[in-house]
Amino acid sequence: MSPRAQAGLWFAQRMSAVVLAFAVVVHLATMIYAVRSGLSAAEILDRTRGNLPWFLFYAGFVVAIAVHLPIGLRNVIAETLGWRGRLLEACTAALAAGLLAWGLRAAWAVYAPGGA
């Protein structure tokens, strides 16, 4: 991977961290509110189904995770295990694709009017 691409990954990880700093706080506050208010799963789904702002928020959250985590994991593996190169990049890219697919599926499941 070229230094330019490596610098691009670094920048993408920092930008996704900015999104995560906001999204994690909102997500935690929402969970605490839901638990303390005694909302049932059905009541939560009643609020999220068809709610486009919540879907866009969680879709953005998922994209930020799918960008941030594999880049960081790639660095951690390279530094602690000394494993580098194309196979590592392919594995972390596959992890990114998996996180994106599973995360978007989950976000869609709580948004889709009839369920996923």
Partner: peptide
């Protein structure tokens, strides 16, 4: 800047 960019440079 190209020489110091990337995994072996400032970004590490």
């Amino acid at each position: 800047l190209a020489a110091v960019a990337g995994d072996a440079g400032c970004h590490a």
